[in-house]
């Protein structure tokens, strides 16, 4: 279980990294935290000719508040997100999700840019980015680009990123006032990939839901937003029946796969159960926040 030979580069700046990647695009891989890439290399499932190690690009490791939202540098480690007071204050659903990302040793190394670019359909960060309508900002030789998280993930381990594009930061736009959020995950062990994970935000005004967002991981080939469910909640008064109907709809609107760990039926069932829980919890948290 040793990787095939590769050339190794370790640029000191983003500009240098962009140039290096532009020259080798198709045969190179970026190495950030390495928590997904290195096992793939060791299994020889990936045999890139070159690795470009971006761990020296300290310019990509930052957290900054911006217009009530957050700019998160691509090299920000999971542990930094998990423990950031700014994240906890502005996007508690992200803090909540981070505790489910693998184990502390992995969270000390893993990065947000790496997780988004790797695009595991059962991973927490791509799903939370999708939930929060994140903007994923990148650089390539052609210049900067911005992708909507909702359009970023195209399938298992695949994204719209071009071969020469580097994720530089993620922008999470501010949540509206009187918004509650919640995250729930089912995995075989604490820290494992989700068999199903669901997260929600619920915004209310004048006793009615003005907007609700529901995102799912582990139950499809990519993280999903459940538009139909969200639409069914908008404008309604929150009650148990409404949540029950929405949860059932959530289960019906995903198209999960069967694998060793769980059948499609079980995943669909879990999506419904977890949707009920996060919608209820998200709504309950508004009242607390508004008090």
């Amino acid at each position: 279980m040793k990787p095939a030979p590769f050339e190794y580069f370790c640029p000191d700046s983003l500009d240098e990294a962009v140039v290096l990647l532009a020259g080798r695009a198709a045969e190179a891989k970026l190495l950030a935290g390495g928590q997904s890439l290195v096992p793939l290399l060791n299994f020889r499932l990936l045999q890139p000719a070159a690795l470009i190690d971006i761990n020296r690009l300290s310019e990509l490791a930052f957290l900054a508040e911006d217009r009530g939202g957050l700019r998160i540098g691509a090299l920000t480690r999971h542990h930094a997100l998990e423990t950031s007071p700014a994240v906890a204050a502005l996007f508690p659903v992200l803090s909540e999700a981070m505790a489910h990302v693998a184990h502390l040793a992995v969270r000390n190394r893993g990065t947000i840019g790496g997780s988004l670019a790797h695009a595991d359909p059962a991973a927490e960060l791509p799903m939370v980015a999708t939930l929060l309508d994140a903007e994923i900002r990148t650089r390539s030789a052609a210049g900067p680009h911005t992708h909507d998280a909702r359009d970023f993930f195209t399938g298992p381990l695949s994204t719209v990123l071009a071969d020469d594009e580097i994720v530089t930061e993620v922008f999470l736009p501010a949540l509206p006032p009187r918004t509650g959020s919640a995250f729930a995950e089912f995995s075989l062990r604490r820290g494992d990939f989700a068999i199903a994970a669901v997260a929600a935000t619920v915004t209310v005004a004048d006793g009615r839901i003005t907007a609700a967002r529901l995102a799912v991981a582990g139950a499809d080939e990519r993280p999903l937003r459940l538009d139909e469910v969200e639409a069914s909640l908008a404008g309604q008064c929150f009650d148990a029946d409404l949540v029950e109907t929405a949860a059932r709809l959530a289960g019906e609107s995903v198209n999960p796969f069967t694998d060793l760990r769980a059948s499609a039926d079980y995943r669909r069932h879990l999506v419904a159960v977890l949707a009920r829980r996060v919608l209820t919890e998200a709504h309950a948290r508004i009242a607390v926040g508004a008090a």
Partner: peptide
């Protein structure tokens, strides 16, 4: 949780500790 799984043709499906699930301290 722990189960070594082969398919009907004798292919091993649990070839890593992602798929062969041993309990951790949390379990």
């Amino acid at each position: 949780t722990e189960e070594i799984v082969y398919d009907e043709a004798g292919q091993l499906l649990t070839a890593s500790l992602v798929d062969y699930v041993i309990p951790a301290a949390s379990e």
